[in-house]
Design a binder for these strands. Structure first.
Length: 481
RNA sequence: GCCCCCAUCGUCUAGCGGCCUAGGACGGUUCCUUCUCAAGGAACAAAUCGUCGGUCCGAAUCCGACUGGGGGUACCA
C-alpha cells in the first residue's frame, strides 16, 4: 500500500506558518516512504471563505518547494479535491449513517441550543447536545422533513464506552464516550462539518497517515467512531505539537505578525532556511546538526522522534539559521536571490552589485538587509546618523585626492593624516564612513571605497557638497532644518 | 467547570535505570581579530532535571498525587 499524506487547509485567510510546518511533515513523511502528498481544500465554511485564499496557498507551497502531487488545481485520481464540489458524496454517506442508526436528524433551532448551553453552564455541566431530537419518532421526523423544517444531521454516540486510538506522537490516548458530543456532521446548508468531511475524504482518497495539530486530539474520538460506523480502516494519526508564541502564551497567533508566511517572504528569509528551522524545533538531527537541507531531513527524520511539547517560536534562532544559509550561498547565487527579492537591486548595475556582494554577505541575516547595508553604493546618502566634522572631511579630501585608489595606500595616508593632526585614526575613519555612507555601521570602508571609485568618494567628501546638500548639519538625523 | 496533552539551562533540545560532576545549539558575557558593524575563533556563565511521595542496590529516566503550561469543549476549521 502506498503511503498517502495530505494537508487540508481551509481558505479562510493568509497561510499560517504552522500550516507550512504541517506540510513539511506530511511532505517529508510521504517522500521518505516513496508515497504521495496531496492537497485537499476544506472549503465548507462559506461564512469565513476568503476569495483568493486558495491561490495564496498554492503560491506559498510553491515558494517552499513543497508542491502537492494531487490538488484541486492539478487534479488527480481522486478528484474533486475541493470539498464544496463533493457535496453529493457527503449526503450519500450521511444517509447511510442515518439508515444504520448512527446518525439522526436534528431540528433544534440555534436559539434553543444556545439557551440549552447557557443552562448547562449555569449548572456546571459540560455544554453538550441534550439528545432531544434523538427521541423523535420516525413519523415525527418524516413530518418535519416533509414540512421543510431546517435541520442538521448529528452523529449518535454510544454511552459508557472507551474510545481509544494510538497516536504516532503521543502514544495511546483514551476517552470516555460520555464526554463526546453528538457532533453535527451535516449542516443545515447541506455542507458537511470538518469532522465528517475529513473522515469521508481521508478514506475515499486513501490517506494512510494523518498529521495535524494537537488541537485536534480532543475531536479525534469522534473520527474514530465515524470510522467504526462505516467499518473503515482508520489512517494512522500523528498529532503535532503546536507552535507557541514567543512568550509561550498561546499558540502562534496572527497578533504576532510572524504567524503569516507572508512575513518571511517580505523580510527576505530563505524558504529552505525557514524549513530547516521549523523542522529543528520539533525534531533533532541524530548527529546534533543544526543546519541540514530538506533532502537530508527527509532521509533522517523519524516521526516517532518528534517532540510532544509545544515549542516557542524563536525569531533570533531563525535569524541565525537564515544567516547560515545566506553565507553558504555563493556570491553569484546570493546576488540572484537578492535581485529577485529587491527590485531596487535588480535595477542596479549588476556588475557593481556583484562587486559588493562579498563585502555585504557576511553581514546579512535576511535578504532585505542587503539594501540597508549597501544602498550607498548606488545612491548618495541623504542624511547622516551623527554630526559631520568639516575639518576632518576637508583633510580627508586633500589627502585622498592624490592617492593611488587601493585600500592599502588609502589606509596609509589616512593614518598619516590622523597623526599629523593628532586625531584618533578611529575618528577619522568614522568621519569618512559617515560622509560616504551616511551611517556609522556598514561593510569594510576602504574596500567599499575602492568599489565606489575615487571620483564619487571625493564628491561625497567635497566641501562643495554644501551646495548639493544645503548644509551638512541640517541633514543630520533628528535635526530640524 | 469538564476532558485531553505536556513538563531538562532564558529559548529549542539530547537523554529512554548505572556511561550525567546532565551534552549540543540559539541567545548572553568576556577575549582574540579590527576602520564601524558583522562574520569567524576561543572561553565563561546558565538547568537543585516543576514539587512531593513511591518502586529499586541505584532515577532526569519507572509509578502516583499535586502544581504549572498548552489544547479542546460551535451548524469554525
Amino acid at each position: 500500500m502506498t503511503v498517502r499524506t495530505r494537508i487540508a487547509p481551509s481558505p479562510t485567510g493568509f497561510p499560517h506558518i504552522g500550516t507550512i510546518y504541517q506540510v513539511l511533515i506530511d511532505f517529508a513523511f510521504a517522500r521518505k516512504a516513496g508515497g504521495k502528498f496531496i492537497l485537499r481544500l476544506e472549503d465548507t465554511d462559506r461564512a469565513r471563505f476568503v476569495e483568493g485564499a486558495e491561490d495564496v496557498i498554492y503560491s506559498s507551497l510553491a515558494w517552499f518547494s513543497l508542491n502537492p502531487d494531487e490538488s484541486p488545481k492539478i487534479g488527480g485520481p481522486f478528484a474533486p479535491y475541493r470539498q464544496s464540489e463533493r457535496l453529493p458524496i457527503y449526503k450519500k454517506y450521511s444517509d447511510e449513517l442515518i439508515a444504520k442508526g448512527h446518525a439522526y436528524y436534528c431540528f433544534c433551532t440555534r436559539e434553543r441550543l444556545e439557551e440549552m448551553r447557557k443552562n448547562q453552564e449555569a449548572h456546571h455541566l459540560p455544554p453538550m447536545y441534550d439528545k432531544t431530537c434523538l427521541k423523535l419518532t420516525p413519523t415525527d421526523v418524516k413530518a418535519k422533513l416533509d414540512a421543510g423544517v431546517p435541520h442538521v444531521v448529528r452523529m449518535n454516540v454510544p454511552v459508557h464506552e472507551k474510545i481509544a486510538f494510538d497516536d504516532l506522537v503521543s502514544g495511546h490516548i483514551e476517552f470516555d464516550s460520555d464526554v463526546i458530543d453528538h457532533q453535527v456532521i451535516m449542516k443545515s446548508d447541506g455542507f458537511p462539518t470538518y469532522h465528517f468531511g475529513v473522515v469521508v475524504d481521508d478514506h475515499l482518497m486513501e490517506i494512510t497517515h494523518v498529521f495535524r495539530g494537537k488541537e485536534w486530539i480532543s475531536s479525534t474520538p469522534k473520527h474514530v467512531l465515524l470510522y467504526q460506523y462505516f467499518g473503515w480502516k482508520m489512517p494512522v494519526h500523528g498529532h503535532l505539537p503546536l507552535i507557541l508564541n514567543e512568550d509561550g502564551k498561546g499558540k502562534l497567533s496572527k497578533r504576532h505578525g510572524h504567524a503569516s508566511v507572508d512575513y518571511y517572504r517580505k523580510l527576505g528569509y530563505l524558504p529552505e532556511a525557514v524549513l530547516n528551522y521549523l523542522s529543528n524545533i520539533v525534531w533533532n538531527h541524530p548527529e546534533g546538526k543544526e543546519i541540514y537541507d530538506l533532502d537530508e531531513f527527509i532521509k533522517r527524520f523519524d516521526v516517532e522522534k518528534i517532540t510532544s511539547q509545544g515549542p516557542r517560536f524563536d525569531l533570533k534562532k531563525l535569524d541565525w539559521v537564515n544567516g547560515q544559509y545566506i553565507r553558504a550561498l555563493t556570491d553569484d547565487a546570493l546576488q540572484t536571490r537578492v535581485s529577485e527579492f529587491d527590485e531596487r537591486v535588480s535595477r542596479a548595475d549588476a556588475k557593481l552589485v556583484a562587486k559588493t556582494m562579498p563585502l555585504v554577505k557576511e553581514r546579512m541575516h535576511v535578504l532585505s538587509d542587503y539594501w540597508s547595508l549597501a544602498s550607498f553604493f548606488f545612491t548618495k546618502p541623504d542624511s547622516f546618523e551623527t554630526p559631520l566634522r568639516k575639518d576632518m572631511l576637508s583633510g580627508l579630501y586633500e589627502t585622498l585626492t592624490p592617492v593611488d585608489w587601493k585600500h592599502e595606500p588609502m589606509e596609509q595616508s589616512i593614518r598619516q593624516l590622523a597623526e599629523k593632526n593628532s586625531w584618533k585614526p578611529k575618528d577619522v575613519f568614522m568621519q569618512l564612513r559617515l560622509a560616504v555612507t551616511g551611517k556609522t555601521v556598514g561593510p569594510p570602508l576602504l574596500e567599499s571605497l575602492e568599489i565606489l571609485g575615487k571620483e564619487e568618494t571625493l564628491i561625497r567628501l567635497s566641501v562643495e557638497l554644501d551646495s548639493h546638500y544645503p548644509s551638512f548639519e541640517e541633514k543630520i538625523v533628528g535635526k530640524k532644518p
